[in-house]
Design a protein around this nucleic acid. Sequence first.
DNA 1: TTGACAACTTACTAACTAGTAAGTAAAATC
DNA 2: GATTTTACTTACTAGTTAGTAAGTTGTCAA
Lengths: 191, 191
Amino acid sequence: MVKIENSKKTIINLAESLLQDKGFNGFSYANISAELGVKNAAIHYHFPSKEDLGIAVIHRYRERFKLWINNSRVKDLSPVDKLNWFFSIYSNFRADNGKVCLVGSLEAEFNSIPEGLRKEVEALHREMLTWLESTLSEGKEAGVFQFNGTPASKAALIYSSVQGALQMARALGTKKFKDVIEQHKQDLLVS
Amino acid sequence: MVKIENSKKTIINLAESLLQDKGFNGFSYANISAELGVKNAAIHYHFPSKEDLGIAVIHRYRERFKLWINNSRVKDLSPVDKLNWFFSIYSNFRADNGKVCLVGSLEAEFNSIPEGLRKEVEALHREMLTWLESTLSEGKEAGVFQFNGTPASKAALIYSSVQGALQMARALGTKKFKDVIEQHKQDLLVS
DNA sequence: TTGACAACTTACTAACTAGTAAGTAAAATC
DNA sequence: GATTTTACTTACTAGTTAGTAAGTTGTCAA
């Protein structure tokens, strides 16, 4: 009998990677079990349904994001550095590896994924938008960001753009993604 | 024997709708044949493989986009109205019906779709970006648009944002999409 | 040392997937 | 009027999917 080390964590890691790579409808339990050298029933033991597995991936990401933004290494940054940190989540490793945002991947397939997973995606999206909004607000008040409109709609613009740009990078290359990030900075930063 | 009227066109219509709704890996030939009241082999007669069908959908969209932008009803518009026309493609009917951009849908699943389809998606994306870039360029020269950076990267920003915002609308509602469009106008238009 | 429990395997199912080969009916062409 | 072509149906396949029930093994606690 093959024992998986840190089974739950290892399975979630793999599922997260597959989600970003192939999408929810693009991977199967067989992909995971084959990779780990176990039978598919071993995956079902930990996550009875695919919906459970998907939810676990997003839930962990929500917890992680909450930890990040409340950790002093992010919380105490200047608004400009907070924004750079946010962009770096996607620039380092994701765009270069053809991976996309979990939220974007699942929202693209939103009408063909289970109900419970949709709720989880919605919650994550709201949480990330809320953080981005308050960061923009903070920066505007501090006089380092300039933009018209509300912080909420500017946050929605930036977030949706990052989401779309990661997908764009797959077809048109990483450079396009980096161009978009630079453009956001030019639009936003007071020079 | 049930005869489909305008069979090829009707099948492509349905496939396009399913693509925008469920994604490439989220629909099957059975969905289409059931909807039309025929057998799945009837669909295979017109489009031997699913890749063929996907390519046909994107190819038709490319032709349609080319016709639109070369038609005087769009070509002769002012830059501002061209941009409004572009936004209206997505505002009217797509965002409200939970449908997303074809390009976005397929790029989100890029690593789990057939090779030939990827090429077609890439071509469509390039064509749309090129048009948007030249529209932005035209508007900047005419003094009706204001933005830093190159028209190319501003075009990539706007396009990726529309793509992401359509996906966002599914989880967070249509209003969020409309906020993003308004924000783009505020960012861009000379007041 | 025993028993309980966790983490698997074995072996299976029912439903669905894209795709095919051969047959049929109606319409168009000769 | 005969023949060819188009657009389907019938009937099937091999592979994959998520999911389950029952059995096995290794570990840890009493």
